[in-house]
């Protein structure tokens, strides 16, 4: 890599607690623009929790509170005056289990824009087409936009969820194990999609699958027991890890 891309998220000394229990310890990390950053680690290591810090989805859990600095383009997103809905609009999220809404494909895509107050029919139609094309789903569903989204296959549903996120024109897309509920073919399609989306979006992906992380990520972060063990270029982390624990994990010694 030549010049370093600009920083999107700067996290310093982040501690996160669920009630008394500390789930993240002194995390400091910088996320760079238009790169794929993969978060790996064994179950319960805090990588999903960390992901949800970035769009404040942890707010939904009453007992959750954090200390430290999380800045998005130099703005502290944990200020009381932060526009959380606006933050989530530009930092979109795709979940582990495909979760299209129980409505038509088209309605799924225009739900977000409509909530932002966009009413122009022509514009909405354009958004539907563009986001489906970007999510490589257009050819498969263009004739059945009015059909229920739940009629799609799992992989299609997940790409619809990605399209739904894209429809909001976000800057960052957070992905929480987006392929763990999918078969290998659907997984491959999503991975291809992630690689092509990289040109326009910053992607942060949590994955259990180390091969996947190695295949698609530019930067990889290894979490263990709520701590960030190692963070760096994916190639380097997977070929010559600096930390012994990282090495043990990626060689399959535990986890």
């Amino acid at each position: 890599m030549t010049a370093q891309n600009p920083i999107v998220f700067q996290i310093e000394n982040l501690n996160l607690f669920y009630g008394e229990k500390q789930a993240l310890k002194e995390i400091s990390i910088a996320i760079y623009e238009k790169e794929v950053t993969a978060l790996i680690g064994p179950s319960g290591c805090g990588k999903s929790t960390f992901l949800r810090v970035l769009n404040r989805m942890n707010d939904l859990i009453d007992s959750c509170h954090i200390t430290g600095n999380v800045t998005y383009h130099d703005q502290d997103i944990y200020q009381p005056k932060t526009d959380v809905n606006g933050l989530r609009k530009s930092v979109g999220m795709v979940f582990q289990k495909p979760n299209p809404f129980p409505m038509s494909i088209q309605d799924n895509l225009i739900y977000g824009p409509k909530c932002q107050g966009i009413r122009d029919r022509f514009l909405l139609k354009q958004i539907v087409e563009q986001s489906l094309k970007q999510a490589a789903l257009w050819d498969e569903v263009k004739d059945r936009l009015k059909e229920s989204a739940l009629a799609l296959s799992g992989g299609q549903q997940q790409r619809l969820c990605i399209a739904r996120t894209i429809a909001m024109k976000p800057e960052v897309i957070l992905m929480d194990e987006p392929t763990s509920a999918l078969d290998p073919v659907a997984t491959a399609k999503i991975e291809d999609l992630i690689s092509s989306l990289k040109q326009d979006y910053t992607i942060i992906i949590v994955t259990h699958n180390m091969q996947q992380a190695a295949r698609i990520s530019d930067k990889t972060a290894f979490f263990l027991m709520g701590e960030l063990i190692e963070y760096g270029d994916a190639n380097q982390l997977f070929s010559t890890p600096e930390n012994k624990k990282t090495e043990e994990y990626i060689t399959g010694r535990f986890g």
Binding site: N55, F95, P102, G112, C115, C161
Partner: peptide
């Protein structure tokens, strides 16, 4: 009504009220 719907809606930048009345209640 699955929590995934609520989270999906909130993650799209919809407000809590929009989520409740446009996603949860119809569900």
């Amino acid at each position: 009504v699955p929590d995934e719907y609520r989270q999906g809606s909130l993650a799209l930048g919809a407000s809590k009220t929009q989520t409740t009345f446009r996603i949860v209640l119809p569900g």
